[in-house]
Design a protein around this nucleic acid. Sequence first.
DNA 1: CACGAGACCTGTTCGC
DNA 2: TGCGAACAGGTCTCGT
Length: 268
Amino acid sequence: MPELPEVETIVRALRPALVGKSILSADLRWPRSLAAPTPLAFARRVKGQKIEEVSRRAKYFILHLSSFSLLIHLRMSGDLLVKEGAYIPAKHDRLHLRLSDDTTLVFSDPRKFGRLWLTADPEEVLGDLGPEPLDPSFTPQIFYERLHIRRRQLKPLLLDQTFIAGLGNIYTDEALHMARLHPLAQSDSVTAEQVEALWRAVREVLEEGIRSNGTSIDWVYRGGEFQNQLRVYGRAGQPCPVCATKIERLVIGQRGAHFCPACQPFKE
DNA sequence: CACGAGACCTGTTCGC
DNA sequence: TGCGAACAGGTCTCGT
C-alpha cells in the first residue's frame, strides 16, 4: 500500500499518539519481520525506550527512541495503528509495542513483506536512498543531471529508490501522465522542459496524495481519498480524463504501467 | 550498467 | 459452486 503520501499520512496520524510515551514491552509475533538485530536483542533494547519523535524518510516510518531508531518499512501490505486499552491480537499482527499510556502500537502486515530495524545508526539502512522529492534541495537542475547520468526507462527509474525516494507504482504512473511522458521513454533523452514538467508533476501528485490522506484501494483501507482522483493508475480500458483515449496497461519491470497512448506518445 | 526473472507472502478477483 | 490463474501500493538477488 504505502508510498510516500500514505506513510506521511500515517506519521501525521500517529505522532500525537506516540510522542512522549515509553515502550513497556515488545511482542514480536512474526520474527522474520525483524531485519535487525536478533529478536532477543530487540526485545531487550526496545524495552524502556521513550519515543522522542516520529518522522519519515522516503517510505520508511521512523520512531526516534532515547538511544535507538526503530525504522519500519510497510512494503506492500503493512499498516501501523494504535489501539487503546486491552487489545486482542488480530490475525496479521506482526509486532505489538505496549506503551506507557495503556495503548499498543500494532504493526499489521498480511503479506509479511514489511521490515523492522532497531538501530543506533539509521544511515546504515537509509544511506543509499535518493533525494526526497518534496525537499527544497531537490531542484529541476539536480533532477535533470540525475536523469541524464544514466540511460534507463523512466518508469523503472522513478521506482528506483536510490534514484528518487518515495515514489511507488501509483504515483509514478500519475506523475508520468501529468508530465505527458511515456513510461518507456529513455531518461537521458528527456529535454529540460520535460524534466521541468516531470519535476513539477512528481511534486504535485505527491502533495495531492498527502492532501487526500493517501490512496485506499482493495481490501487495505486507510481512509485516504486519492483513489477517486487517479487519472491512469488502475484505469486500463477507461477513458483518459484529458483526451478520452483509452488508457493502456503495459508490464514494465514486472510492474503494471498505466498510461494514455495519446497524451504520452512513445517516440523512437 | 540496464534489464528480466525469481523470491519473499497472503488475499482477492476474474475467467471458465 | 469450484478451482486455478492473475493480480496487488515493494524490494532484494541473481543471471545475461
